[in-house]
Write a protein that binds this DNA or RNA. Structure first.
Length: 842
DNA sequence: AGCACGCCGACT
DNA sequence: GTCGGCGTGCTC
């Protein structure tokens, strides 16, 4: 790693060079801002450190130093940097390069990238607070105060300072701004900005013997004699000495013992412990500890790779000799994870860092536990459900070299690696690697590849069902390709059976959403005490409800969608903006009580199955049941412990989980997965079917998959049942070529939003025309009104630009697009349009 | 992104 | 006649 630039050595400090720093503010601003470095900070300012500046009239913010130079800005007076937060950079030079690349490639600002990249505890921002005016005398106010003002003055007397939100809570009203204004005028209070450090280290209370008793052996002995009359206290000291053998090594006493080890011991009395502290025999102190417990005792256990795994690993290593990127195409259950682990070990032996990316829903406790067993405390985990303090510790742990492997979700690509030697992108085809809202709309897989080129390291992409673009690159020889098509262990691939729900409906053998066949199989598996997973790719109870008499359908008032019915709280809810209302008892349009639900989600499946199989223990796992960290763990633990017989869920049940006792997987409604208006619909459906099927029958037992569909003759099922990825790929790549989709063209989606439908339409049409005129060698499609044409009261139009790389440079095309968008805002009718650019949308 | 300045409707 | 709505423009 290159060292942070020292711009001036301390012995030259007397020369008083005037320095300026260009900083990146964590805001969507198009450029950097230049601040002046106070002379006394000249020796401490480095690229990548955080500094505190005032931005605007009052806001105080932390930002990242991107450059330090001696060029005074022209045309304005630079403000001074107020403070330098970090002694050493928290952002590495490689990161700044990558961040700039992301901003350019995904057409957003560097500030937006920084904002997404830094854990929020590293982003400090001031908050306005009020306190009493130093000259204010509560006994003799100069001006009379209103009751509300009195209340604030009283609270300030107690609390010294208040934030605006605290004032709001205190007065129980929203319009408190004028009250504050009035208090300032009356010179009762003053406003100031306070910036608080958000990262709080974890502190534990510890106990040790007072130094008096350990310096000399006699003292300790004497203490024991003294305590002979206090057997309970003696007991505590003896326990302490057992944990900390001070008599063997005096220096052990310094580190003491965790207080709760003594206090939580049921054989020791709390009051005796406190008495010893009071008497000064024990001394209490605090230390800062890691949130990731250090455990050096675990050796890296050896495990044996199978013949096929060794072959795959060697092939990958061999290909890395000539290629920087290798695709590992391994069927579900072929044991890709062990290959990854082996490669990670090898990379670590060379002293490099490793990044192992997984999609959010695949980063489960199961995989983490497995990796901890191998890598112990050298493994950092970066997950969105982690607290901010934990994220900061991972961030710092990488900077300090404590962690050399990180397993993480897409945002882990932002971490401050300085010496990557391997990146693994598992489930490479997953669309959740792409962030859609807010900017940066990046794809972590693509950023990972760029990260690898900056670090000159290798990338391994892994999937059972690679994205068509990825496979194309591998097949054409640009990237390496390694295939694993044997399942690890004895188990073969599961049997897959189709059930024609349309025919069963005609025969009247459907039990609501369950075919005769599926229901019978569930019952038979449960009888054998085996477990079942049911997959339904839609949460809630029903996607909409409908009045039987007048056809009324409740719609969201902010979005062009019908409201989904959630039964557990009798609520109608919009999945786009969160708007919700209670489920009406009768139709508000005609008064009829005949309201029926249409379609179904996981909640309804769970509900109906409980009626059909009252004996079975059924659990549901979807976004609604896993909102909190523990609920997710609980559902998994219950299923693992066999307390649950049937698990009903969305995509969440399909990834990262291995359950040994699952012998049946049911896909309730395959058609809802296939019939999607998108060029990737088939690819995605195939990936999902294969992924779900992979949950059936691991470890020796052959599993069964039942797919329910109203149209079993569709070609995709044949490919799924025969596990024929190649057929899927060949079909898809031809379609892509024929209709000019990636990888043959680059797609940029431009969405125009406006509260006024007409203006939105006009602006989009104008923009599309501008694109067409200025990008003559490329295809501009639209504007089109999307299926959901209004979200959060904004009307939408979409323009798709397909860039032909043969004729246009991506870079210049993006400049043209950005310029056209800026141009259109000069027209004052269109000043209020919002334009969202999505590069490589998924 | 905030925040301040600035011009048009419903209240004392 | 004022308060206060949020449109618009700026922040080194």
């Amino acid at each position: 790693m290159s060292q942070p630039l020292l711009f001036q050595s301390s012995d030259q400090a007397t020369e008083r060079i005037t320095l300026f720093a260009d900083v990146i503010l964590p805001l969507p601003l198009p450029k950097l801002y230049t601040y002046r470095v106070p002379f006394d900070m000249n020796d401490d300012i480095f690229v990548g450190t955080r500094v505190i500046v005032q931005f605007g009239a009052k806001k105080i913010l932390s930002c990242i130093v991107a450059d330090v130079h001696e060029t005074p800005p022209a045309g304005y007076q630079a403000k001074y940097i107020l403070e330098i937060i970090d002694e050493k950079p928290v952002v590495t030079p490689q990161q700044l390069k990558i961040f700039n690349w992301i901003a350019e490639y995904y057409m957003c600002t560097i500030g937006e990238v920084i904002n997404a990249a830094l854990p929020s505890a590293l982003k400090l921002s001031s908050e306005s607070r009020i306190q009493l005016h130093p000259q204010f005398n509560a006994e003799y106010p100069v001006y009379p105060l209103s009751p509300a003002e009195e209340k604030i003055v009283f609270a300030l007397g107690q609390n010294k300072t208040l934030t605006f939100t605290e004032v709001g809570n205190l007065l129980q009203i929203n319009h408190f701004h004028k009250i504050i204004k009035s208090l300032i005028q009356k010179e009762v209070i003053i406003i100031f900005e306070e910036i608080a450090d958000k990262y709080t280290p974890k502190v534990v209370k510890k106990l040790r013997l007072s130094p008096n008793f350990v310096h000399e052996a006699e003292m300790l002995e004497e203490l024991m004699n003294q305590l002979a009359v206090r057997p309970k206290q003696l007991d505590v000291v003896l326990h302490y000495l057992q944990k900390v053998p001070v008599h063997q090594n005096v220096h052990l006493n310094e580190k003491g013992v965790d207080k709760n080890i003594l206090t939580s011991n049921p054989h020791l009395s709390l009051s005796s412990i406190n008495a010893l502290i009071k008497k000064g025999i024990l001394e209490q102190f605090e230390t800062i500890v890691s949130r990731f417990p250090v455990d050096d005792t675990k050796p890296i256990p050896a495990f044996n790779l199978s013949e096929h795994q060794i072959a795959a690993r060697d092939e990958i290593l061999n290909l890395f000799g000539s290629k920087d990127i290798v695709l590992l195409h391994g069927i579900t259950g072929s044991g890709k994870t062990e290959v990854y682990i082996d490669l990670i070990k090898k990379a670590m032996e060379g002293g490099g860092q490793v990044l192992y990316l997984l999609p959010e829903i695949a980063l489960t406790a199961q995989i983490v536990t497995r990796l901890i067993k191998v890598f112990g405390n050298r493994l950092g985990v970066y997950h969105s459900k982690f607290s901010d303090n934990e994220r900061v510790e991972v961030w710092n742990g990488i900077l300090s070299g404590r962690f050399s492997v990180v397993i993480g979700v897409r945002s882990a690509i932002f971490l401050p690696f300085y010496n990557l030697s391997l990146i693994i992108v598992d489930e490479e085809h997953e669309s959740s690697y792409k962030q859609y809202e807010p900017a940066p709309r990046y794809n972590a897989r693509e950023v990972a590849l760029m990260l690898a080129t900056y670090h000159k390291c290798k990338t391994l992409l892994g999937s059972a069902t690679p994205a068509v673009e990825t496979y194309y690159n591998a097949k054409t020889g640009r990237w390496g390709l390694v295939t694993m098509n044997k399942r690890f262990g004895q188990a073969g691939l599961p049997d897959i059976e189709l059930v024609d729900t349309r025919r069963e409906s005609q025969k009247k053998t459907m039990h609501s959403h369950f075919s005769q066949k599926l229901l019978a199989m569930i019952e038979s598996k449960l009888k054998k005490e085996e477990q079942v997973i049911l997959f339904q790719n839609r949460r809630g109870y029903a996607p909409y409800i409908n009045c039987h008499d007048c056809d009324w359908i409740p719609k969201c008032k902010n979005c062009a969608v019908s409201l989904s019915y959630h039964k557990y709280n009798r609520e109608l809810r919009c999945h786009y903006c969160g708007y919700h209302e209670t489920m009406p008892h009768e139709c508000p349009a005609c008064g009829s009580a005949m309201i029926k639900t249409v379609g179904f989600g996981t909640e309804k499946i769970e509900d109906e199955l409980k009626l059909l199989l009252p004996e079975a223990n059924i659990q549901r796992m979807d976004l609604d049941t896993t909102r909190s960290k523990n609920s997710y763990q609980q559902i998994i633990a219950d299923f693992e412990a066999n307390n649950t017989n049937v698990l009903v869920g969305t995509q969440m049940v399909t990834k990262g989980l291995d359950f040994e006792n699952v012998s049946l997987v049911g896909i309730i409604n395959a058609d809802s997965i296939i019939n999607y208006p998108d060029y990737r619909a088939h690819e995605r459906a195939y990936q999902m079917f294969v992924q779900v099927s992979g949950r059936a029958g691991r470890k020796g037992k052959k599993g069964l998959v039942i797919i329910q569909t109203g149209n079993p003759s569709q070609g995709i099922f044949q490919k799924v049942m025969e596990n024929d990825y190649m057929a899927l790929y060949e079909h898809e790549i031809q379609e892509r070529r024929k209709f000019n989709f990636p990888p043959f063209m680059r797609v940029i989606k431009v969405t125009v939003k406006h509260v006024d439908e007409k203006l939105n339409e006009q602006a989009a049409a104008l923009l599309a025309k501008e694109f067409t005129d200025r990008l003559p060698n490329n295809q501009v499609l639209g504007p089109e009104v999307p299926y959901i044409f209004k979200i959060r009261n904004y009307f939408l139009s979409e323009i798709h630009i397909k860039l032909d790389r043969e004729h246009t440079s991506l870079k210049s095309a993006k400049l043209v697009i950005a310029d056209a968008i800026n141009q259109i805002k000069f027209n004052k009718d269109f000043r209020n349009i919002r334009v969202v650019v999505d590069v490589d949308p998924v």
